[in-house]
Design a protein around this nucleic acid. Structure first.
Lengths: 114, 114
DNA sequence: CAGAGTGTTCGATGAAAACCATACACTCCC
DNA sequence: GGGAGTGTATGGTTTTCATCGAACACTCTG
């Protein structure tokens, strides 16, 4: 049998393409401190290199799972199952095509903390 | 006495300059359907031409007043008292300087409704 | 000065969102 | 198969936010 890194009998996570996301949904997804952290940390890592539990955010894993679901629903994050963990990728190009400049604002920000 | 169009003994509205606004605050301000409507309608009108009550949004005046306060706090709107009414201006250039492209996303959007 | 028009403030209500603890499902390794 | 590791689903609590009604403040006009 051919080699498969994504062997899984789990239900694949549901993704929403950025094209199908409203501005309001996109903004709401990014208007949360925890999710901003996740996106920034994700942007600073190689694609598919970070599992959900590897992020440094001050919430339990249930809440964390919820936040990733929101990010998926906003077309910001793509997930894939790799063995026991679920690894992530920031959908940079696709999201940029749909909302030009928006991701940049989050990543490059040097303004007031809150 | 010199002519004054802004004669008022009312407390001037408190404004926040876009420079002092965090990304998170800006996004939160724009992640609301009513406020998106206000910004869009405002963008399509001449500066200082629209009083608060002249906008077509499905909320009472108490809620409307609150929404304008949020927009002021995000550096999106400037207000001035003119006789009995409070007229508005979209802080296009200043907001664009602080958050390049963001206002554009709201105004030029043609994506999914919600 | 009385009244109409305009907008803010206050208090309360309802809905949405974030969060946690627990329980469950799946994968890997022994 | 048992157990550790990882993530999701569920149920319930807390917080936050949008909204309204009513009361109040200010401006202009009659």
């Amino acid at each position: 049998m051919a080699q498969r890194t994504t062997t899984s009998h789990r239900a694949a996570p549901e993704h929403t393409h950025p094209e199908d996301v409203s501005v309001q949904t996109a903004l709401a997804a990014l208007a949360d401190p925890v999710r901003i952290s996740l996106v920034r940390e994700l942007a600073g890592s190689a694609e598919w290199s970070r599992s959900c539990g590897s992020f440094d955010v001050p919430v339990g894993k249930a809440a964390l799972s919820h936040h990733f679901a929101v990010l998926r629903g906003a077309g910001l994050v793509e997930q894939r199952d790799e063995g026991p963990r679920r690894v992530n990728r920031l959908r940079r190009a696709e999201f940029e095509a749909r909302f030009p400049g928006l991701l940049e604002l989050i990543l490059r920000d040097d303004g007031p903390a809150a």
